Computed example of a mutant assay.
Amino acid sequence: MAQDRRPAGRSERRAAGERKPREERWAQLLEVATQMFYEKGYDGASLQDIADRLGMLKGSLYYYIQSKEDLLFEVISEVHREGFAVVSSASQGPGDPLDRLERTIRAHVEHACRNLVPTAVFLHELESLPTARREEILGSGHAYQGVFRDLVAEAQRDGLARPDVDPRVAGLSILGSTNWVYRWFRADGPSTPEEIGVQLAAMAVHGVATAEVLAARGAVVGA
């Protein structure tokens, strides 16, 4: 994952008299652009809108980017990179594949609930990018989705998941259902991100585990 993430069009030079360090201003630009794409959509938000919100001239944006598409690419890339780091970390460590699947789902749900605006922009606006740029973000084999797929496949190899389950379909189903929390989760709602994560993880595991494993896990929970 280590790679140079300088945005397209950014100068290597520090502008004389620049009020804020370049990286601080870039982070602010990404934050404001994310919010504007959320409020107006990619098509509705203009670079002028973003410059106005930042309190800078539109022309100054070209110090950091070459086009609005470049800016969307950087926003989407950042959301994907942060989310992938969360699920990749959660999928590793102790426990059998189903334990790690549960942990990964909980982490993904909690991250989405606490980052509703970036999550919404990612899910709404990814298709606004050209195919090649989408694939550059998602990676070969859709690495984010692959975390869930690979855990299901590993559980199958260990005899913990039913052999009739297609790991790819299971991964898509898990990611699709958990992504949807951004549409209905409310910070002042009846359930916390942790509670929602636990429930969605339990339902996902119940959908792929063998009957014997479910019985054993139920006995452990009820012990």
Rank of each mutant, 00 (worst) to 15 (best):
P130I: 09
E194P: 01
D188R: 04
S128A: 02
G189P: 06
P163M: 09
E154C: 03
G171M: 09
A153R: 07
T131M: 11
F185H: 12
A132K: 14
A187L: 13
D150R: 11
E125L: 04
G176V: 08
I174G: 02
P190Q: 15
V165H: 06
T178Y: 10
D188G: 08
G159T: 11
V165Q: 07
R133Q: 09
R134E: 01
E194H: 13
P193L: 06
H124V: 07
Y182M: 12
I137D: 01
P193M: 02
H124P: 00
P167K: 06
E194Y: 08
E154G: 00
L172F: 12
W184A: 01
R133S: 05
D164P: 05
L151F: 06
F185A: 01
T192N: 01
R183E: 10
T192S: 13
E194K: 12
A143Y: 01
S173D: 00
Q156G: 03
D188T: 11
R157M: 11
R183A: 11
R133G: 02
P167R: 09
R149H: 00
A132E: 15
V165C: 04
T178K: 02
H124Y: 03
L129H: 06
V165G: 00
P193K: 00
G141N: 10
Y182P: 00
V181M: 00
V147G: 00
V169Q: 04
P130W: 10
R133E: 08
G189K: 03
N179Q: 04
P130N: 08
L172M: 12
V181S: 03
E154L: 07
L160P: 00
L151G: 02
A155K: 07
A155C: 05
S140C: 08
V152G: 04
G171L: 07
T192Q: 05
P193G: 04
G171S: 09
S128C: 06
F148K: 08
Y182V: 14
L160C: 07
V165S: 02
E194W: 08
S140M: 12
P167T: 12
Y182L: 07
D166V: 13
L175W: 12
D188F: 03
L138T: 10
S191F: 15
G146L: 09
D164V: 14
V147S: 01
A132R: 15
G159K: 07
S140I: 15
W180G: 05
A161W: 09
R183G: 05
Q145T: 14
R168I: 14
G171Y: 10
P190T: 14
A153C: 01
L151Y: 05
G146Y: 14
G189W: 13
G146T: 14
R168S: 14
D164S: 14
A132C: 09
L160K: 04
A161P: 02
H142Y: 06
L129M: 06
F185M: 07
I174Q: 01
D166A: 13
S191L: 14
L172S: 11
S128Y: 03
R133L: 08
T131A: 14
R162W: 04
G159A: 08
Q145E: 14
E127V: 12
Y144Q: 10
F148D: 06
R168W: 15
S173F: 10
H124Q: 10
S191A: 15
S140V: 14
V147M: 03
P163H: 08
A187T: 15
L129G: 04
D150H: 04
V181L: 01
P190I: 15
R157V: 12
E154M: 07
W180N: 08
R134N: 02
D164C: 11
D158F: 15
V152A: 06
R134P: 00
P190M: 14
L138W: 03
